[in-house]
């Protein structure tokens, strides 16, 4: 996958339409996994994932090849995704009932194991929501999605050292939280 990502900017610059599906393949799981934590449910996460890549595709159409070749794709995609997650959180806070209804209507793609796994996702979403915005973003991008600090910093516009301390403080907060839960 890393090999794919490295060659993608030049391939996108040469032929956007041909290379674009590979960009989606390479990054869709990461975007979806992060969006699961940044939005209310799987339905929203799926929407955000789709919308992220659709916007990315349109943006690529307005960039010249040189700019595309220089793109750091993963942080670039995450800048778009984080923005969409924030917008969604804002509008969701205005209509909380709809969110609950969607949660219930959300069709898990199959067996019980999936439901248990999603319970895990939901449980951590609640814990992570008690963190500050930057801490939650940094913890999820680093530990769930697997982005290095430098790429998180590039996505959020914060410095790398701030990002490191965001992650450290976020983890400390989570630990306290879990210890309180276990008491």
């Amino acid at each position: 996958m890393i090999a794919t990502l490295n060659s993608l900017p030049s391939r996108l610059a040469a032929d956007r339409d041909r290379a674009f599906p590979d960009l989606v393949h390479a990054l869709q799981d990461g975007v979806y996994s992060g969006a699961l934590q940044f939005t209310r449910n799987g339905h929203d996460a799926q929407d955000v994932t789709q919308e992220t890549f659709i916007r990315a595709y349109r943006a690529l159409g307005s960039y010249d090849p040189e700019r595309i070749s220089d793109l750091n794709l993963r942080p670039w995609i995450w800048t778009i995704a984080l923005n969409l997650c924030r917008n969604r959180a804002r509008s969701a806070s205005r209509r909380p009932e709809a969110a609950l209804a969607e949660d219930r209507a959300e069709a898990g793609p199959g067996p019980e194991a999936q439901a248990i796994a999603d319970a895990e996702v939901n449980e951590w979403r609640v814990r992570l929501s008690t963190l500050s915005g930057p801490q939650r973003t940094a913890v999820v991008l680093h530990h769930v999605v697997g982005l290095p600090y430098s790429e998180i910093a590039a996505s959020t516009g914060r410095t790398e050292s701030t990002t490191r301390s965001d992650v450290r403080r976020g983890l400390a907060r989570l630990r306290t939280l879990i210890e309180e839960e276990n008491r």
Partner: peptide, 20 residues
């Protein structure tokens, strides 16, 4: 936290490619 990663659901890429 690492175990919270999930594959994007089936059909996501198809819908992206259709809409683009």
């Amino acid at each position: 936290l690492a175990a919270l990663s999930r594959p994007a659901p089936d059909g996501v890429i198809e819908r992206i490619l259709i809409r683009t």
